[in-house]
Design a protein around this nucleic acid. Sequence first.
DNA 1: AATGAATGAGTTTTCATTCAT
DNA 2: GATGAATGAAAACTCATTCAT
Lengths: 204, 204, 204, 204
Amino acid sequence: MKSCLMPKIGQEPARRAALVNATISEIGLACSLDVTVGQIARRAGMSTALAHYYFESKDAIFLAAMRHIISEYGRAVRALLHPDQSPRERLSAIVEASLGRDQFADEIVSAWLVFYVEAQRSPEAGRLLKIYARRLHSNLVYGLRFLVDPPAAHGIAQGAASMIDGIYIRHALQSDAPSRPQARALVNNYIDLNIARYSAKTED
Amino acid sequence: MKSCLMPKIGQEPARRAALVNATISEIGLACSLDVTVGQIARRAGMSTALAHYYFESKDAIFLAAMRHIISEYGRAVRALLHPDQSPRERLSAIVEASLGRDQFADEIVSAWLVFYVEAQRSPEAGRLLKIYARRLHSNLVYGLRFLVDPPAAHGIAQGAASMIDGIYIRHALQSDAPSRPQARALVNNYIDLNIARYSAKTED
Amino acid sequence: MKSCLMPKIGQEPARRAALVNATISEIGLACSLDVTVGQIARRAGMSTALAHYYFESKDAIFLAAMRHIISEYGRAVRALLHPDQSPRERLSAIVEASLGRDQFADEIVSAWLVFYVEAQRSPEAGRLLKIYARRLHSNLVYGLRFLVDPPAAHGIAQGAASMIDGIYIRHALQSDAPSRPQARALVNNYIDLNIARYSAKTED
Amino acid sequence: MKSCLMPKIGQEPARRAALVNATISEIGLACSLDVTVGQIARRAGMSTALAHYYFESKDAIFLAAMRHIISEYGRAVRALLHPDQSPRERLSAIVEASLGRDQFADEIVSAWLVFYVEAQRSPEAGRLLKIYARRLHSNLVYGLRFLVDPPAAHGIAQGAASMIDGIYIRHALQSDAPSRPQARALVNNYIDLNIARYSAKTED
DNA sequence: AATGAATGAGTTTTCATTCAT
DNA sequence: GATGAATGAAAACTCATTCAT
């Protein structure tokens, strides 16, 4: 069934990727989901009609962008995790990845915030976000497992995750938000204090 | 050309308040700024035209709503602060107010999130939000003043504020977000640990 | 609650009527439902937005037009019926009304045909058309009641109604379709022959 | 630049036939000309681009489908006509063919109606339909030739043809339309009565 | 003060058609 | 022959905003 000529390399993946990137850029630029398919398509270098050819609807484009951003985060975490890390190193790696330079880029932060809000409206967006949140949570708990008991691990993970998310949202405050190094210090400090307290308690 | 009826006096404040409340309700319901002036006006019991009579534009309505929500928060904080509180009690009161039942109502949380996002777009919204953030920060620092040194106070305040905001944003996760008591415990625990560490360090 | 000034006479009925008439005109002109809201609105002297202000959707406009055309037909029938007509006169009056000059106007015929087709797609359009068809049928049966027995009345009514509808559809053939007088003669002849046969049979 | 495979011979007629059949199916299903080239092509098992390769335009596809449906009708008539039929048998055969099981299939009836409407818009469609109408008319007149005089034959043919078309259009009424046997009876009865009247008149 | 009426500008989506391969 | 890719044009519908009354 194939043509005898060079197989046309699928435009589809490239076009979809271009649209996803353009979507994140435009959302980051507008700091809002109020972005038209026209804007996205133009930035991706194609007509609106073509954008609709590759995605079923505007919502589908947004969800693809969200999936992309979450999977990029997953990739960033995995890149910093190694089997021979100590539990504490593992936690630091997660914090580092969560507040990494890529994740902290203005447009990515904007996109995350916007998607958090969207998650309240779109069930599918909510589902995606919950998956991300649970993965972060279980990553943290997994690192804490050898350092504190399970209930404590759960609590500390929740606190750390909240703090990370809070740091993101505070980016909306521009200059008043903590910088990346400050952010890392805040979260690592929080984790250290909790671990230390736990050790102190159990030494009694 | 005057109306034949008695000119109603003082309608303006009532009308504006009705619109502000309606705005918050609709934003909370829609979990988004994608709310039409028509919806707001209808919920406030008036025509769209009248809404535009009392507010210059849709943006102005949103800003008024944001101002209202922030000032309500300020009122909540002041209500829990007393001159004869200990510094630590003062901190707990701020946490309590920030995570109070009123602030934690679903529609209020939604509105806050939406406004946080909006702050990235609208300079005026950003300005309002910074005012709120600085007030929260200085309230916390004021409470920490007698317990830790100024740089530490600054850091702890930033951590606590981030955690509070993070708890809010995690509300987008619905069931996976910490409950109100859990939220209070997380933040108070964070503050306690930091104070304790500081005391321990300075005792050396 | 009313203003002291002259009560604004409702634009609504006038606008809706204008839209309905414009719709029939445009459908008649285009000989098809492929008519845009823009065309209809322009012919009715208003913007598309206003057309959507007065009607919920394009479909609603079409249905209103259909209702109008059917009710006009009903009015035409009632105008020709008198209590003191003989049964046969009554039948002629119905035929006359069904093939009257107004109903036979090109644009009205086009509209009827288009609505007949639409009735296969839109349940509401189908409902409207069935109401019309049953009314025509029962009008004919009512006239035939004293001339033939019930089963015969039903059959003759069906034949006459089919013939009338067929004459309409043949209008699509332009010059090859029967003229109005020919049309009347065809249907009346059909009715007469059936009544005569029935009389002959029962005289045996 | 030729394809590497054996050039497939005689694909064209098969492809065109597939498209024509697919068109009729889709029109019948949608009960409307609002059918996209994409739908037609997919049902015919090919790409839209290929459909445009075989037909100049969407209109050309529709016209081909119309030609097909009309020629199928012609074939159905010819299949029931025999040289040794009596004139009356000949008329019955035409009626039988016009209301035959094949012609009465839902999707064919729908297609006919849609084409009737289309005939008002497209001159070419109108031309095709007139050809069909004249053939039906002359077939009927040819059968009536020995039974009544020419003017009477013309009138009866017009009445019968109108009734047949009317029966088709009433299909839009679904349950309220005459069934196939009822339909045949109605038309044959109409013809019989007219012939009988003529005989009676000329016997005087 | 209050509102129904009115609209321009914009948004998503669809589709016939063309073109490169 | 055959198709995926691409687009311009158009259509329905929405909405903030204005205006006459």
